[in-house]
């Protein structure tokens, strides 16, 4: 069925090489995008919970803007609109970036910043789910705001939200396919190209589908592993399902056992 993938292309490669190259771009986009999203998401999520009005309003603004504009529109904004609205020297420099990178960087920025807004909300929910006693105990020991966040709040909040971060990992890697709209030859774009070159639509998209599913499985396994690795000894295990989110988790009263210790 997938025999067509091993046929020669016009440029002397095989079609499967196209797919693999597409897979490479997809993985690169998801991987680097994830770290951008995670870094910014934690900072903005913390910003949502701080006392300082200026920072909390700024963080709120970030979340509302990036979470509520469709990814496709954000993709176009970074790719088409950004070079036009920045000072013309910078805009020209952006337009000079050679082909694969000219779509890769805007796509990276777009997915990173969009996913960051979603992660920020998870981080905020995690922080707000911590018992007040934790912050009081830290204050009573003389730990200031920064030290309390760094050593007490954030490490616990992140453990709490590993299950919901799993859906964000899945989300960012599925959203990489939107990058085809700005010309990045990632997995979906390559599948379409193969389909157009061979008229074997089913084989081309079938192969892409299988690859996407395998990736999802790997990501899910990796997150399950991470969840186990960071679990606090003595606390009861958390059930991990890909679409589980913190809100549903809390309703069922299955918050990680870590929190039971502090009641």
């Amino acid at each position: 069925m997938f025999g067509v993938l091993f046929e020669q292309t016009a440029d002397g490669q095989r079609y499967i090489d196209w797919l693999l190259s597409g897979l490479g771009w997809t993985l690169a986009l998801a991987f680097f995008g994830w770290w951008i999203a995670f870094g910014i998401g934690v900072i903005v999520g913390v910003g949502r919970t701080v006392q300082n009005r200026f920072f909390s309003v700024l963080a709120r603004l970030y979340v509302e803007i990036f979470r509520n504009i469709p990814v496709l529109v954000q993709m176009f904004l970074w790719y088409f609109v950004l070079p036009e609205v920045v000072p013309s020297a910078l805009g020209d420099a952006i337009k000079q970036i050679p082909p694969p990178w000219a779509s890769f960087f805007p796509a990276l920025l777009c997915l990173g910043l969009y996913t960051a807004a979603r992660i920020a909300e998870q981080v905020r929910a995690g922080i707000e789910a911590l018992p007040r006693g934790q912050i009081e105990a830290a204050s009573a020991l003389g730990l200031g705001g920064y030290l309390t966040y760094r050593y007490v709040i954030v490490p616990q909040a992140l453990r709490l939200i590993v299950p919901s971060l799993t859906s964000e990992v899945m989300g960012i890697y599925k959203n990489t396919s939107v990058a085809l709209t700005i010309g990045l030859m990632e997995l979906t774009a390559q599948a379409r190209q193969i389909s157009e070159a061979t008229f074997q639509t089913f084989s081309a998209f079938g192969a892409a589908t299988i690859i996407y599913l395998c990736l999802a499985l790997i990501a899910y396994q990796a997150m399950t592993f991470i969840d186990k690795a960071v679990r606090i000894p003595g606390s009861s295990p958390v059930k991990l399902t890909p679409d589980q989110d913190l809100a549903a988790d809390m309703q069922q009263g299955t918050l990680p056992g870590a929190m039971e210790a502090v009641k």
Binding site: P131, L141, L143, Y151, Q156, I232
Partner: peptide, 26 residues
């Protein structure tokens, strides 16, 4: 120093780390 009714130990740190955090950082 303050001791709470509900202990409020930091669950993600070991017993020793609970005791070491503030002396080291503060």
């Amino acid at each position: 120093g303050m001791v709470f009714q509900s202990f409020n130990l930091f669950p993600h740190l070991t017993v020793a780390e609970n005791c070491m955090l503030a002396p080291m950082k503060v």
